[in-house]
Write a protein that binds this DNA or RNA. Sequence first.
DNA 1: GGTTAGCACTCAACTTTTTGAAGTGCTATG
DNA 2: CATAGCACTTCAAAAAGTTGAGTGCTAACC
Lengths: 377, 377
Amino acid sequence: MKLERKDEILKYIVEEFIETAQPVGSKTLLEKYKLNCSSATIRNAMAELEKEGMLEKTHVSSGRVPSAQGYQYYLDHLDNSALMNSVDMEFQREFQEVLNSRSKSVEDVLSRSCQMLSEMTNMATVVLGPKATEELLVSLQLLRLTEKTAMFIFITDSGYVEKKTFVINNKDGVTFSALSTAIAMLSERLVGTKISELEGKAKALEPIFIQTFGRGGDVVLQAFLDALISFAKKRFQVYGQKNLLSLPEFSSDKESFLSAFDALQDPHNLEKNFAQHDDIGSNVNVAFTNDKKGDFAIVSKPLNSKDSIAIVGPKRMDYKRVLSALEYVVYMLDKYYFSTPASSSSLIPVSEVSNVEIMKENKKKPAKKVAKKGGKK
Amino acid sequence: MKLERKDEILKYIVEEFIETAQPVGSKTLLEKYKLNCSSATIRNAMAELEKEGMLEKTHVSSGRVPSAQGYQYYLDHLDNSALMNSVDMEFQREFQEVLNSRSKSVEDVLSRSCQMLSEMTNMATVVLGPKATEELLVSLQLLRLTEKTAMFIFITDSGYVEKKTFVINNKDGVTFSALSTAIAMLSERLVGTKISELEGKAKALEPIFIQTFGRGGDVVLQAFLDALISFAKKRFQVYGQKNLLSLPEFSSDKESFLSAFDALQDPHNLEKNFAQHDDIGSNVNVAFTNDKKGDFAIVSKPLNSKDSIAIVGPKRMDYKRVLSALEYVVYMLDKYYFSTPASSSSLIPVSEVSNVEIMKENKKKPAKKVAKKGGKK
DNA sequence: GGTTAGCACTCAACTTTTTGAAGTGCTATG
DNA sequence: CATAGCACTTCAAAAAGTTGAGTGCTAACC
């Protein structure tokens, strides 16, 4: 059996299955893709590919479906250099509009980017930030909201903001102004500390507090520490998870959708499947999960030094589309937001670039390589 | 036909349907509830109730299903005084634990409360805040994140925090310190302004900015205004929407779940069906929606002067359970968080109340009345 | 060796038929 | 006004039959 043809057949099967979500048969393959051989030959090739673990059958007389290994092989042999130029023009145009949109805050642009990614890929998109506990406290404030309520505001070095509102009751000398003093004191000592080390460091201040405020100081400190414990580990945003419901792999079976939904409720579970920041700027990472929580493909890429962006869906996804779209979006965001080349302009760089370039001929396409990364089996 | 019996039959039908989600027949009714009459009598009553618009049939020889009007009647005639005491003991115990939990910030307690409500009612729970645009700006800050990025932080009088990160590029004199001065200036003039009026008011400052900063000031101001425009209207949290998927009304039909999901993506659409704050502290409101977006019941109650909490699900929901749970939770939250009776204690009131009371015998049950409010038909 | 035509077999998916349970309305009677 | 009885309706689920896409294998062919 010619190796070349076998590869080709595998590729076609993967693509056909990606498109139709139906097991692929030898005849269909023959008709749709012009292979100059007969269906019997294709069947032979398929039998071999199955033996090699690239394909699977749903039942003895069904067509073939790619296995995880099959997808992996497909991904490893994708023509990456062509991907970047395959980004849909319409998408590029729309994305350009986002970059030129009125509000150019990182939050707004990122959120709209993700919505667009979700929409065009019909998958869920996740932006995953670093664990808040690994970040540094850069600001600790107290704000009076009403007569009886006050709000702590914690801000970390990557701009994560967490607020905690408390009810104050002017007893035991816990007045707003006392609180204010306490927080100023805490702020002075704790800004610059890693969140995870905050508790220990704050605890050490307890004697000072009790000395200064009496018993009330104790309570303040405890409340502060308690608030910290629930300091969100959730540094993520999920977009378009409802898209998954329209996919055949989830719509047929309620359970699987729910488990996908759950997994996306707390994507930190998926974190180990994300691209690492070590190789920032280089690769798109494709990982497959395979646990009780479900069976996903996670296509991810570091977005900047802290965050990653990922497209999450079933293994059967249009990788060409997904990889190229993600690559494109990250490239553009990086270019216009996260790096600031000398050539670019003032406060909001994009505002000056009235016509964001559209990549059609590849002049300076970024390095692109799909990295392997096996999910735990 | 005895009126009393008819009422009773309607009530049983509603409750049976709530429980089983199946059309209710005369025989079932007779067997399950001890009505001292025959099935034929029940049938006659049902025929009358149908004529009055309380019941509907799914097809000519099916059992009966309550109509919206039927539910309304049922709700109007619920024995409200008994509800408050019907809250599940286990739930009360668990809720007490939440109130006594380590972190007593309003955010944490509220979020856990809603999770509990969702879980016990198997519905979605929504906390809806006021429109951000109707609130006052109480703080406007600038924070340097990295060499190249800075973050605006807006805070409104109800403690809503919004952040916008921008990339700074030291050109045209737009340095961080210039920005800082600008924001200080803006802050001085704009704090206390209603968000919706901010834009106009800021615009008036443009000449001053241009004069002070030259062209750069212009850009800053514009960026600021643009960020405002996307200042989230979304002041809400949704919990447990995945529960809806397990309900027969949604699980059978993907479309209906999606429309429910969509409706919950932006609950401000549902806002008109929420309890009004005029009658704060008084009533639980039950409203039915009936539009293209779907068919829900919304059981809501003002939580404090700003926010409302609502349980959202299909019209077929266990109203006794839902009403009592919501009533209970809001009552407890109000008691320990939003009002601060003289009796209560220091910084975080609940921390002192080591054993939050459990209502078993009704001593001081709050005023309770179900308000009518027709959804638009 | 690789390729192909042909054939028997498998199995899921769809359609049709059958059956039974749950329900109603109506009528005559207590 | 309530009830027993009966004829009729409808849906849902099971059973039975039909179809079609797919396979593996064998024998022949280049």
